[in-house]
Simulated scan of single mutants.
Amino acid sequence: MSLGFSLAAGLGLGELRGATLAEVDAAAALQHRVDRKYLVPLDRARRLIACLTDSHHVLDLGGRRTTRYLSTYFDTPELGAWRAHVQRRRRRWKVRTRLYAEDGLCRVEVKTKDGRGATVKHALRVPASQYGELTTRAEQFVDEVLDGAGIPVRAKELSAAAEVRYVRAALADLDHGSRVTLDGTLSCHRDDRTAALDPGHVLIETKGGAQLAPADRRLLGMGARPVSLSKYIVGQSLLTPGLPDNDVRRLARTHFTTEANPAPLHERIPAA
Results as ranks from 00 to 15, higher is better:
residue 60 D to S: 06
residue 148 G to L: 02
residue 184 G to P: 04
residue 12 G to L: 00
residue 123 A to Y: 04
residue 46 R to S: 11
residue 95 V to G: 11
residue 75 D to Q: 09
residue 93 W to M: 04
residue 259 E to P: 01
residue 117 G to Y: 14
residue 154 R to T: 15
residue 235 G to I: 10
residue 190 R to Q: 08
residue 205 E to N: 08
residue 98 R to F: 03
residue 140 Q to L: 15
residue 8 A to N: 01
residue 247 D to H: 01
residue 170 A to W: 13
residue 138 A to C: 08
residue 82 W to Q: 08
residue 182 L to E: 06
residue 137 R to W: 10
residue 255 H to D: 08
residue 89 R to C: 11
residue 238 L to K: 10
residue 79 L to W: 15
residue 219 L to A: 10
residue 238 L to N: 07
residue 197 L to T: 05
residue 271 A to C: 08
residue 12 G to P: 08
residue 204 I to G: 00
residue 134 L to Y: 07
residue 31 Q to C: 10
residue 243 L to M: 14
residue 149 A to M: 04
residue 256 F to G: 05
residue 211 Q to Y: 11
residue 31 Q to R: 15
residue 265 L to Q: 02
residue 129 S to F: 12
residue 254 T to M: 09
residue 90 R to Y: 06
residue 122 H to T: 14
residue 233 I to L: 00
residue 208 G to P: 03
residue 130 Q to K: 13
residue 226 P to F: 11
residue 39 L to N: 06
residue 43 D to S: 06
residue 176 H to P: 01
residue 184 G to Q: 10
residue 45 A to Y: 14
residue 58 V to D: 07
residue 224 A to F: 10
residue 203 L to A: 03
residue 190 R to T: 02
residue 17 R to C: 12
residue 111 K to I: 03
residue 65 R to L: 07
residue 120 V to F: 07
residue 196 A to C: 07
residue 21 L to H: 11
residue 71 S to G: 03
residue 214 P to L: 07
residue 86 V to T: 14
residue 145 V to T: 02
residue 44 R to E: 12
residue 94 K to T: 02
residue 205 E to F: 10
residue 230 S to K: 01
residue 201 H to F: 01
residue 145 V to M: 05
residue 272 A to E: 03
residue 238 L to P: 09
residue 212 L to Q: 14
residue 149 A to D: 13
residue 24 V to R: 14
residue 45 A to G: 01
residue 246 N to R: 13
residue 23 E to C: 13
residue 226 P to V: 06
residue 40 V to Q: 09
residue 147 D to L: 01
residue 172 A to Q: 05
residue 14 G to T: 04
residue 105 L to E: 07
residue 114 D to K: 05
residue 248 V to G: 00
residue 55 S to K: 15
residue 242 G to M: 00
residue 175 D to R: 15
residue 53 T to D: 13
residue 14 G to L: 00
residue 3 L to T: 03
residue 161 A to E: 12
residue 157 E to W: 11
residue 165 R to W: 01
residue 264 P to V: 09
residue 226 P to H: 00
residue 209 G to V: 00
residue 220 L to M: 11
residue 73 Y to D: 12
residue 178 S to W: 10
residue 162 A to C: 15
residue 67 T to M: 13
residue 176 H to E: 12
residue 91 R to P: 01
residue 146 L to E: 10
residue 151 I to G: 01
residue 29 A to D: 12
residue 84 A to S: 15
residue 164 V to M: 06
residue 271 A to W: 14
residue 82 W to G: 02
residue 42 L to E: 09
residue 48 L to R: 00
residue 7 L to T: 02
residue 72 T to Y: 05
residue 48 L to H: 05
residue 39 L to S: 01
residue 264 P to W: 07
residue 200 G to W: 02
residue 153 V to N: 06
residue 38 Y to Q: 02
residue 24 V to C: 12
residue 151 I to Q: 09
